[in-house]
């Protein structure tokens, strides 16, 4: 396979449509805990994250707990100010824009959260919850009512649900309300942070199906954050795999899943149990040793090296860059799989 070294910015196909969202070298260092005399060194939760999201596509963001998925997601919609790098939405830098100037743009990107109940105000009716972003836009009362009715139908709830409060709904229904609210302003991008992780399998499928249908109807792009690789495979067009704050592999979904280039991706995929006992018995499995290390104290060189079955000396000293390993796919490894 061809292994080129090229920075990502140049990697985009010339024929590909312009990016809706482009993220460059994004970083977040949280201040460390307070020590006796001074603060301990900061926690590098996200480091040098670079990717594009094209209009109408779904980028899946996967990785183990604590690898920085949520932190990245929150920075994409500027719920959190990055400490490095920038995020541009349709060519406009949104990392440095003052919050008040961000207002008109805000309606164009939205976020959905994992715990549907925690993100809904328990004292507001569904009507009020979904109408809030519309009111913020200064829409008229009549119009808002009509819009909200449409939205509720769109996400598969009934108009009679409008006067109820969040606690009167099941988890799946509450997530539908969160989705309706996120879609109220007809955004071009929705960042969904583990939107189905708290739901039962049968309900997960309903929400995933709903999100797919809405994408087909409205052309909205998603950044879909999850730790469940199967769900991400189902819904995404492209996938980015994170480990300890960095993207270790990114590319077309089918390629990443079928021929992972990074040893971590490979191990991750082989660790997911398949709902097929026969396949499970014969499957080759890479069992990684140890736990993911803490971002407060990351290993030197390639941060994956203490757990990597392919690690060599160079891995301990030199951090691999994210480089093109095949057209439309990059991995950060000195020895990527062919």
């Amino acid at each position: 396979m061809t292994t080129e070294t090229a920075p990502l910015a140049d990697a985009a196909d010339p024929g590909a449509p312009a990016a809706l969202l482009s993220v460059r070298d994004l970083g977040m260092t949280f201040p460390g805990p307070r020590g006796t005399l001074r603060r301990r060194p900061g926690i590098r939760a996200v480091d040098g994250v670079t990717f594009d999201v094209r209009p109408g596509e779904t980028l899946g963001l996967v990785g183990e707990s604590g690898c920085g998925k949520s932190t990245t997601g929150r920075m994409l919609v500027r719920l959190l100010d990055p400490t490095a790098g920038r995020v541009s939405f349709r060519g406009q830098d949104i990392t440095t824009t003052p919050q008040h100037r961000l207002r008109p743009l805000r309606s164009r990107f939205q976020m959905i959260f994992q715990d549907p109940f925690a993100s809904l105000n328990p004292r507001q009716t569904v009507q009020q919850i979904i109408a809030a972003p519309l009111r913020a836009q200064g829409e008229g009362k009549q119009r808002i009512r009509a819009e909200v009715r449409d939205l509720v139908r769109l996400v598969g709830l009934a108009p009679e649900h409008l006067e109820r409060y969040p606690h009167q709904f099941s988890g799946g229904q509450a997530q539908r309300i969160g989705i309706a609210r996120a879609l109220a302003t007809r955004p071009e991008l929705v960042v969904a942070d583990e939107p189905v992780s708290a739901l039962d399998v049968s309900i997960q499928a309903q929400i995933v199906g709903l999100m797919e249908r809405l994408q087909a109807e409205l052309g909205v792009a998603y950044v879909f954050i999850a730790h469940d690789l199967a769900v991400v495979k189902h819904i995404s067009h492209r996938v980015a795999v994170m480990y300890l704050g960095r993207i270790v592999e990114i590319g077309d979904k089918q390629q990443v899943y079928d021929h992972p280039a990074h040893p971590y991706t490979k191990a991750l995929l082989s660790a997911v149990p398949l709902p097929d006992p026969a396949a499970e018995r014969t499957r080759e499995r890479i069992v990684l040793l140890g736990d993911p290390p803490s971002p407060a104290n990351p290993p030197s060189g390639c941060t994956f090296h203490p757990r990597c079955p392919k690690a060599q000396d160079v891995c301990r000293t030199e951090a691999p860059l994210l480089t093109l390993t095949a057209p439309g796919r990059q991995a950060a490894c000195h020895f990527p799989e062919a």
């Binding site: 049968s202 499928a205 309903q206 199967a230 495979k233 089918q254």
Partner: peptide
Amino acid sequence: LLDSLPRLDAEDGAELRSIPGS
């Protein structure tokens, strides 16, 4: 339940058939 399960070993474009209701 099996039909509504997203699978790693699924064909691309395989459809999820969810169970309605809760």
